[in-house]
Amino acid sequence: MTNDVAIIGVGIHPFGRFEKSAVEMGAEAIHGALADAGLEWQDIQFGFGGSYEVSNPDSVTRLVGLTGITFTNVFNACATSASAIQQTADTIRLGKYDIGIAVGLDKHPRGAFTDDPAKLALPQWYAENGQFVTTKFFGMKANKYLHDHNISEETLAKVAAKNFRNGALNPNAFRRKPISEEDIMASPVLNYPLRQFMFCAPDEGAAAVIMCRGDLAHQYTDKPVFVRASEIRTRRFGAYEVHATSAPLDADSSPTVYAAKAAYEAAGIGPEDVDVAQLQDTDAGAEVIHMAETGLCADGDQEKLLADGATEIGGSMPVNTDGGLIANGEPIGASGLRQMHELVRQLRGEAGERQVPGNPRVGLAQVYGAPGTASATILSL
């Protein structure tokens, strides 16, 4: 029996603000994935689901069908969807089931990612004195990285402007209006060097991906996309970000570095083989940092790459072609599966105005879940 796992269906509920529950959005994403794969819910043998706001995302089954399937809920901060992806793929590789679904859904209130620190086993005074306002940690991290590698603040504006432009081409994005680099630089500084329009926003949405055994894929689609690797890693040393007022910021301490290296090894490829990438851009600085941490470039090369347009849709290293988090916002449970939706559309050649030219064959998705969990997933034809 083959050990390959193929994605045969993807579905997404638009990201933004809606008068419906997160579970309802999840059901719509599932129906979209089923339609894409030409399947019925009764064909799905198991599922993994993730959410930050919904304690039991398995309740989505009451809206799509109570078929008695195995369904496991997962949570790993911003790496929640990646956890659902990994577990779904690995369950199929183990041979227990032939076909399964990963679904992520969330509905966040307006504002920064402050919420209830008790959800991460933290005392309430973290929130009361501002220590759980994650944006300040993003600012500290970006500030040090820019200083260490001689990268200008204007490069952060280029990242955000690029993602807003891409989001304008994405009918499922939250923010669909381009914002110029000048306007981004003129927006209020929230956590230096990060300005208002350099951040994503918590919002609402859902996404789902159906996978099956690789040798069965052509029964369902003429364009299977294979999950070559899905790796999750945590820190090996140092304090976890967000949980402490200081943490090592050296690249070698980042779990993204470990996850990406493991994924490349498992897939048998290198970063030079990646045709299109989806990187965690909770803020513009994060995208810059993750470009290097995933091996797509060396530390400090980002300034020239951005200036030369390398990360644009038509560039040599397209990043966040759907607008990333900056344009889509981040419903935590759905974010990583949104990345899968975009990569599958790109590799199939179905991304419309956002389509990367030259028939891309390899896609990389990376997410970083505070306080210190990262994932790297590699897809290919």
Rank of each mutant, 00 (worst) to 15 (best):
A186P: 00
K141M: 13
F138N: 11
V159Y: 02
E181M: 08
Q131R: 15
A207S: 13
Y145R: 08
L122E: 01
E182Y: 07
D148V: 02
A157Y: 02
R235V: 12
I179M: 10
P224Y: 06
E181T: 12
L146N: 04
I151L: 09
T221V: 15
E231Q: 15
G205P: 04
N143P: 01
F164I: 10
G139D: 03
R235W: 01
T135L: 05
F226L: 11
E231K: 15
M185S: 07
F237Y: 15
Q131Y: 08
A173G: 05
Y126F: 12
E153S: 10
M211V: 09
S187I: 13
F164T: 09
A201Y: 09
A239K: 10
T155W: 00
P202E: 10
A244P: 00
T245P: 00
T234N: 13
Q196L: 15
G139I: 10
E204L: 06
P171S: 08
C200L: 01
K223S: 10
V227Q: 03
A186D: 09
M140F: 12
P193Q: 03
A142T: 14
F138T: 14
R213D: 00
Y192E: 14
R228Y: 01
S230E: 01
T221Q: 10
F137G: 12
I151G: 06
V227T: 08
R176E: 05
N191Y: 11
V227A: 06
D183K: 15
T234H: 11
N163A: 12
A244K: 14
Y220D: 06
A186W: 01
R233S: 06
C212I: 09
I151S: 04
E231A: 15
W125Q: 12
Y240K: 15
A160L: 04
A121H: 11
A160I: 07
P193H: 01
I179F: 05
D148F: 00
R175I: 12
A217N: 03
F226Y: 15
N172P: 00
G130T: 07
R195C: 05
R228D: 01
W125I: 15
M198S: 04
I179N: 11
V133D: 07
N150F: 04
N172C: 02
M140I: 14
G214S: 03
L120D: 09
D222V: 12
T155D: 01
S180F: 04
L190M: 14
N163P: 02
V227N: 08
A208P: 04
G130D: 00
E128C: 07
P171K: 08
P202V: 13
Q219I: 11
E153F: 03
G139H: 07
R228H: 08
G139W: 02
I151K: 06
S230L: 05
K162H: 02
Y145C: 07
R235I: 12
H243K: 08
K162T: 05
F132T: 14
T155R: 05
G139P: 03
R228L: 08
P123T: 11
I232A: 10
L190Q: 13
E241K: 14
D215Q: 09
A229G: 05
W125S: 15
S187R: 10
V189G: 09
Y126N: 09
E181A: 06
